[in-house]
Write a protein that binds this DNA or RNA. Sequence first.
DNA 1: GCCCAGGTATAAA
DNA 2: TTTATACATGGG
Length: 279
Amino acid sequence: MQIRKTAEGICLTGDDLPDLEQTLECGQCFRWKKQENGGYTGIVKGYFCRISQEKNRKKLLFHDVDEADFDALWRGYFDLDFDYGAVLQHFSSLHPVLAEAAEFAGGFRILRQDPWETLVSFIFSQNNNIPRIRGIIDRLCACFGEKVPGGYAFPGPETLSLLTEEDLAPLRCGFRAAYLCSASRLVASGKVNLEELASLPAEQAREQLMLIRGVGPKVAECALLYGFHRLECFPMDVWMKRVMAKLFPGKDSSFFGEYAGIAQQVLFHYGRMHPEILC
DNA sequence: GCCCAGGTATAAA
DNA sequence: TTTATACATGGG
């Protein structure tokens, strides 16, 4: 990966760059918007960014970003300094279907998202579909987030903890409003401490998150994987149970080791596009 | 209209 | 401990 500053922004070239569509539309994040030219715009930690990508995935341009911002935020956010190729190569040796999946979803990266934003996003995700999750989060930011250049920041737990379920009615998030209230109050009060939780063993971190009403094992696992970058975590829904039973009978997620979450996402993404892997 | 969505809380078996 | 159902909403 080469990184250079150009008049337009920061330009990345190489054979090991993330694929924006795979990474930003796989269901790990919900705020990036595809542009007509195939690029994406999004707001992370209150900072707006526009990114474009050439079809062959050999070049990525972060528009109007300087080196300092790139190193401080975007480089880490896209996890650019981790060798996904090596992990995928290892997974490819485990099962031919996993090799196909790794080939298919090789440009996928696990983002380093904000823990609070990720937790809330997956609270909204339960019994819900991705377009509607996006809509709810859009409305949450527009209603309660701080105005920043390009849109709205994601509102913090302190802001949201002051709101009632009634206040959240404009989100049209249904029964999840009560869950958001529980989350924001527990986090704002420090009863669930997201900073401390980050360094806990996964089992204890899960327990802490599940103190929040509406956070069960699946939401907690997604929050840990996508919001705390705990790559050993492996969200196990009904679909993934079927995939595991078919491809890796008798094994559980520990079979994949410390990067199980990457295997999970690759299998999940590939499986949605090619459900015949279960035939 | 109908089915269902990256689930969870609750009650019942 | 395991299994069934309601839950609010709206995309397809």
